[in-house]
C-alpha cells in the first residue's frame, strides 16, 4: 500500500517533497508556539491566582478569600445543605430572600435583628447569578456562628484579572460589581470565592453574634468596623488604616 502523500510526491517528480517538508516544519513550529503560549498563559493564571490568594485576605482584613476548586471540594463536599434553591430569573432574588427569611425566623430568636443585612447580602450574590450567568443554585447550611450560604452559578467563571474591581467600593458607572461586594463584605463575616471554567461558587459565612454586637455598638454611637479593624491591627494581622470600606 502506498501512502497518498508519496503518490503525489512521485507523481510530481519529487519536487513537492521540499514543499511538504517546509510546510510540515512550519506547522510543527506553529503548533509548538501555540502549546508554549497556552502553557505560558496557564502559568500566568496560576501566578495571578497565587498572588491574589495571598493579597486579597490582607487587603480585606480577611473578609475575602480566593480558594481553588480542590479546596472548595475538600472543605464542603461532605456538608449536607438544609435548603437548596434554584436561581434562574429576576423574581428568584425575592423568592430566595423570602424562603431563607421564613426558614431562619424559626431557628434564631434574634433573626429579626440581623435579617436585613444578611438578606441584602444574599440579594447581591443572587442578583450576580441572574445578571451574569445562565443560572445557578443556593445551598444553605448552618454553622455554630450563623447561617452559611453557597451561591453557585453555571457560568464560565470569573476573569481573575477583573477581580480587583470588587475592591472598588461605592457605586461605579460602568459596573455595580464593586457596590454589590461592598454590601456583601459589610454584612457577612467572610466570603470565599472559588472560580473555574465550570462557574463561580461564593461562600458567604455569617456571624450572628458579631452582627448583634455591631448593632449594639452602633446604637451606642460607636463604629464597630473601625473598632474591629483596630483590634485586628493590634493583633498584628496587617490590617488597620488600610481597610477598604467605611
Amino acid at each position: 500500500m502506498t501512502l497518498p502523500g508519496f503518490d503525489l510526491i512521485s507523481a510530481t517528480g519529487g519536487w513537492a517533497f521540499p514543499i511538504f517538508a517546509v510546510l510540515g516544519c512550519y506547522f510543527c513550529y506553529r503548533l509548538g508556539r501555540r502549546v508554549q503560549k497556552a502553557k505560558t498563559e496557564q502559568a500566568k493564571d496560576q501566578e495571578l491566582f497565587a498572588a491574589y490568594q495571598e493579597v486579597i485576605p490582607l487587603v480585606t482584613c480577611g473578609t475575602l478569600r480566593l480558594i481553588s476548586p480542590e479546596e472548595y471540594q475538600n472543605a464542603y463536599s461532605k456538608d449536607k445543605p438544609l435548603l437548596v434553591i434554584d436561581i434562574k430569573q429576576k423574581d428568584d432574588v425575592r423568592l430566595v430572600r423570602q424562603t431563607v427569611d421564613q426558614f431562619f425566623s424559626g431557628v434564631f430568636t434574634t433573626w429579626s435583628e440581623v435579617r436585613g443585612g444578611i438578606l441584602t447580602a444574599l440579594s447581591e450574590a443572587v442578583t450576580n447569578v441572574v445578571k451574569h450567568t445562565p443560572g445557578g443554585r443556593l445551598l444553605v447550611y448552618l454553622d455554630p456562628a450563623g447561617p452559611r450560604f453557597h451561591v453557585e452559578d453555571y457560568g464560565s467563571g470569573m476573569d481573575l484579572a477583573k477581580l480587583p474591581a470588587m475592591f472598588v467600593s461605592g457605586y461605579s458607572e460602568k459596573s455595580t460589581l464593586g457596590a454589590g461586594f461592598t454590601i456583601m463584605m459589610r454584612y457577612v463575616e467572610q466570603i470565599e470565592i472559588c472560580t473555574s471554567e465550570a462557574g463561580v461558587s461564593l461562600v458567604l459565612r455569617t456571624n450572628v453574634g458579631q452582627m448583634l454586637s455591631r448593632k449594639r455598638t452602633r446604637r451606642e454611637g460607636g463604629d464597630f468596623h473601625a473598632l474591629s479593624c483596630r483590634a485586628a491591627a493590634e493583633a498584628g494581622n496587617g490590617c488597620g488604616q488600610n481597610h477598604l470600606w467605611q
Partner: peptide, 10 residues
C-alpha cells in the same frame, strides 16, 4: 423599605 440592594440603588 425593608430591603434595598445595589441594583435598586442603581
Amino acid at each position: 423599605l425593608e430591603i434595598i440592594d445595589s441594583t435598586g440603588i442603581g
